[in-house]
Design a protein around this nucleic acid. Structure first.
Length: 213
DNA sequence: ATCCCGAGGG
DNA sequence: CCCTCTGGAT
């Protein structure tokens, strides 16, 4: 297991390589950002950004989206994986925003996760990106890296990974660290064929040392 | 634990 | 061809 100092150092190394790391999702309002994050589940942000301009233009507000059915939304997101489920989530989410929240995206996790299609990861992204609320979103990249670096055990839960990073870093660094991990996972410590041979973290990474054999 | 699910990369 | 992508609901 890595020590707290080693975790901090690992994050700093990632930030050094990807200083520009930040969210790539394009959205002007809280509502549209929420939709984009829901759509980004098991999909690349690039594929999400490809469909959102037309989607957002057609449905500017929760009210606009609450009045249609999933069938009406499908054509807009057909090129994204899991589009049937996501079409349902988007409409149901907009309807709940209208009926329960006055059309305003709530800024509390316990409320966000009540929205259809919004789980802990999506809620944490919205909180940290849009509302400035300290939160640590754990996705497939963060999870993979945490396990490869043995920041947590291989069978660790998402919430344990989340707590481990939160305990290792001050709240004001959580969002930047999250972004650094995402970019690290996306471009360097990739799921397949990661760049272990030339990795600056090789000296503290059991996984990388195993790969080098 | 299982299903959903198109596009892009290797 | 196979794997992966800023997961969530059942």
């Amino acid at each position: 297991m890595l020590s707290k100092d080693q975790i901090e150092l690992a994050i700093a190394t990632m930030q050094e390589k990807y200083p520009q790391a930040r969210t790539s999702l394009v959205a002007d309002t809280d509502f549209h950002f929420l939709l984009a994050v829901i759509l980004s589940a098991q999909a690349t942000d690039k594929s999400v950004n490809l469909v959102t301009p037309a989607l957002f233009s057609r449905f500017p507000t929760p009210n606009d989206l609450a009045q249609v059915t999933a069938t009406d939304v499908k054509p807009y997101i057909k090129t994204i994986g899991l589009y049937r489920n996501k079409a349902r989530y988007l409409v149901a989410c907009a309807q709940k925003l209208v009926t329960d929240y006055g059309g305003v995206v709530p800024a509390q996790r316990e409320e966000l996760v009540k929205l259809p299609g919004v789980g802990r990861k999506t809620a944490n992204v919205v909180l940290s990106e849009r509302f400035g609320v300290p939160a640590f979103a754990v996705d497939t990249h963060v999870s993979r890296i945490a396990k490869r670096l043995q920041i947590v055990a291989a069978d660790a839960s998402v919430t344990l990974i989340e707590r481990k990073f939160m305990d290792s870093l001050p709240p004001e660094k959580w969002l930047d660290a999250h972004h650094a991990l995402i970019f690290w996972g996306r471009y360097w410590c990739t799921a397949r064929q990661p760049h272990c041979a030339t990795c600056p973290l090789l000296n503290i990474c059991a996984y990388g040392q195993e790969q080098a054999k």
